[in-house]
Structures are given as structure tokens and as C-alpha cells.
Simulated scan of single mutants.
Amino acid sequence: MHPSARSPGTTGRKAISRRSCVYYWRDLDDVPEDFGPSVLTLGNFDGVHRGHQRVLQQVLEAARERSAAAVVVSFDPHPAQVHRPESAPELIMGLEDRVEMLAATGIDALLMMRYTLEFAASSPEDFVERVFVRALKARAVVVGHDVRFGRGNSGDLETMRELGATLGFEVIAIDDFGASYPLHSTATDGDRRCSSTWVREALERGDVETAGRVLGREHRMRGEVVHGAARGRELGYPTANLAPSSDGFIPADGIYAGWLIDESGVRWPAAVSVGSNPTFDGVTRQVEAHVINRPPERVQDFDLYGQCVVVEFLHRLRGQVAYRGPEALIEQMKLDVDQARSLLSTEQRASG
């Protein structure tokens, strides 16, 4: 970071992760008066997918060229949840993961503004002057050609350029990031640009492989492990059940190979079930992960209850099926676990 982008001390600073020193503010008042200069971008960044990553890389490069701090301005909750909560899209990731993923890109500061109807009523001019100029002292703003901001989304790229010329900052407009084959999983994807909508569509059909390629990493959920019906334990395949309030888009019902990451950061290979357990006439969707290679000395006491864990989805093995009784289900579960173990072992060798 440029020396003039001073540390905010204790005001508004928050450790985003054990490895991060990113400045994290939840309000304009948290930004120190002497912060800046900066190069910034704004957006919701749900998923922090490869398209978002390209924008953030441009911000970092522009900031380095101008000896400025690289800053992201984002919003919580998602604007759609405020303006049309009945039809707002399900978010790909929760706030904690979004903040961590943004920090991991190498930015210097993150301003996560509280989005309210009052805030949404700000004119484009007032928003840019208060946030970009007075608070963050922007030298440049990096945006896509489809940028919209201010009351009723009345501000667009031309508005931003006019404000930049008046208020003294440069506007850098970048093209959408279109993914080339082999990112595409279907003939209909064509030269589709990376987007949060594409990720959601893939997850809705259980295509976690395509979702992962658009994201640039495995799709994940995060939540507390809670007590369930203990049916998996009775069948010989105990599971860690995520609380219904867990963060992250729930993919289509089915069985997946993936990873469970515990609170200490250990990654465990897992077979993950998403669905309502139709063999037992279940009605509530749940996400539960069976850790495959539990340590032999802890088979009986391997307890994750109460922990906040992350579940990552790598491959979909099959859809959800109602079996005729527990015996058939147990036989299928053994096949699922064996297949997940094989896939994850291959994945480990390839990444190692």
C-alpha cells in the first residue's frame, strides 16, 4: 500500500482472516480522514467469480501504477434483498465468505456499506462525491460497461465519466470476461460471460463442476454442525448436518464428492448429501457430509457438533433416489463413498 494510505488504527479495522491485514470498514465514518489516495471499484461481488477477479486485478494494477490503495466498495445486504425481497436471487455465498474471498485477491481495503432504502435514494452525484471523492480520495474508478449506480440505477458509465471529469478522477472501463472452452459444459453456453447468474443456474441443476470453473474454485457452504435424526450413524455412515441457517447456495438434490473443512482448517474428504432423505419420507432439505477418512483412533469420538465448518462441492455423483428400505440404501451409500474417495484421491494427486 502507498504510504499515504495510512492505517486507520483501531477505528473500523477488522482482521478478515488469520492471514489478512486488509482494512475493513462497515461505514463511511470508519474511513480515516487521511486515507488515500485510492483506485476503487464497486459492486455486489456475489461469488467473487472469475469475472469479478479480472476486475479486481485491473484495480490492483491501476493502484500500483498510481501509488494508491486498491479499494472495493460493496454492499450488504444485496440491493435486490432490499428492493424486491420476494424475488431476490439466492446468494451464492454468505457475507463472511465474500469478505474473505475479496481480501484474498490482494486488495488493500474493503468498504462494505449497509444498503438501505435511505441509502438507495442517494443521487448518483451525491453517492460518488461522498464515497469516492471525500471518503476514499479516488484517483481512478474501475467499472464494467454495464455499471449502474445511484437512485433508481439512474447513473451509468457516461454518468461516471462526467462525474470523473468534474470531480477529478479517471474512469477505467473494462470489458466483460468471457470464458473460453473448456470452461463451457454445454453447447448452449457459447461465449457466455462469467456471471453470478451463470453460477446459480449451474448449481440449480447440480452442475458443481461448471459452477467451480466459473468461480475459479469449488463452490462452498458455511454453517454450524447441528444434531439431526442420527439416521446416518445408525446406518454406519455418520454425517455432519449443516444448520438450516447456513450460508451459501444449496445445489440441486443429490450426492456429491467434496471436502469438509473444520474450524482448525483441516480438510477432510467427504461424501455430501443434499436433499430430504426420500427413503425415509423426509420433507425438509438438508446438507450433510460424511467424512470419509476419519482418523482410526477417533472413529467413535469424531465430534463436529457446534463447529462452524465449510463444505466444498467438487463432483456430483448422482441424483437423490428413494430406495426400498435401509439395506438397499446402505449398499448404495457404500458405492457412493467408494466413488467419492476415488475421485478425491485423484484430485489430491493432481493438485499435489
Results as ranks from 00 to 15, higher is better:
Arg130Ala: 15
Pro89Lys: 11
Gly150Lys: 11
Asp108Cys: 11
Leu110Pro: 08
Met101Val: 06
Leu136Asn: 01
Ala138Leu: 10
Leu102Asp: 08
Thr166Pro: 00
Ser154Lys: 05
Arg151Phe: 04
Ile107Lys: 00
Asp108Asn: 15
Ala165Asp: 09
Asn153Asp: 05
Ser123Val: 10
Gly164Arg: 05
Val141Pro: 02
Arg151Trp: 02
Pro124Ile: 09
Met113Gln: 12
Ala121Pro: 04
Asp126Thr: 15
Val141Ser: 05
Pro124Glu: 06
Val133Asp: 00
Phe149Glu: 04
Ala121Phe: 05
Gly94Trp: 14
Gly144Ala: 11
Asp108Gly: 15
Val142Cys: 04
His145Gln: 11
Asp156Gly: 07
Pro89Glu: 09
Ala121Leu: 10
Met112His: 11
Ser154Trp: 00
Leu110Trp: 07
Gly152Lys: 10
Asp146Cys: 05
His145Val: 07
Val133Arg: 07
Leu157Lys: 07
Val142Phe: 02
Thr116Trp: 00
Leu136Arg: 06
Met93Gly: 04
Asp156Thr: 10
Glu118Thr: 15
Leu157Ser: 09
Arg151Cys: 06
Tyr115His: 08
Glu162Thr: 10
Gly155Glu: 03
Leu111Cys: 05
Ala103Pro: 06
Ala121Glu: 15
Val131His: 02
Lys137Tyr: 01
Asp97Trp: 09
Thr166Asn: 01
Leu163Val: 04
Val141Glu: 03
His145Ala: 08
Ala138Ser: 12
Tyr115Ser: 07
Asp108Ile: 12
Ala109Cys: 07
Ala135Glu: 06
Gly152Thr: 10
Ile107Gly: 00
Leu95Ala: 15
Ser122Asp: 09
Gly144Lys: 13
Val133His: 02
Ala135Tyr: 06
Ala104Gly: 10
Thr116Met: 03
Ala121Asp: 15
Ala140Thr: 12
Met112Leu: 15
Met113Pro: 02
Leu136Thr: 09
Ala120Asn: 09
Leu95Arg: 15
Ala138Tyr: 01
Asp126Glu: 14
Arg134Lys: 15
Pro124Thr: 12
Arg98Ser: 09
Leu102Ile: 14
Asp108His: 15
Ile107Val: 15
Ser154Ile: 04
Val128Ser: 08
Leu95Phe: 08
Asp97Lys: 12
Arg161Gly: 00
Arg151Ala: 06
Phe119His: 13
Arg114Gln: 13
Arg161Lys: 14
Gly94Leu: 13
Phe127Thr: 08
Ala135Thr: 13
Arg161Met: 04
Leu163Lys: 02
Glu100Ile: 11
Ala103Gln: 07
Arg151Gly: 00
Pro89Ala: 08
Asn153Gly: 14
Lys137Gly: 03
Gly106Met: 10
Ser154Ala: 12
Phe119Glu: 12
Asn153Ala: 13
Arg148Phe: 02
Glu125Arg: 14
Gly106His: 08
Pro89Val: 10
Asp97Glu: 15
Arg98Tyr: 12
Val99Thr: 12
Thr166Gln: 05
Tyr115Leu: 09
Gly144Pro: 06
Arg151Ile: 06
Gly94Gln: 14
Thr105Arg: 11
Met113Phe: 01
Val143Thr: 08
Ala140Leu: 13
Val131Leu: 06
Asp146Trp: 03
Phe149Leu: 06
Ala140Ser: 15
Thr116Cys: 01
Glu100Gly: 03
Phe119Leu: 14
Phe132Arg: 09
Phe149Trp: 08
Ala165Ser: 08
Ala109Val: 13
Leu111Ser: 03
Pro124Arg: 10
Glu96Tyr: 05
Arg134Val: 12
Met113Glu: 08
Arg98Met: 13
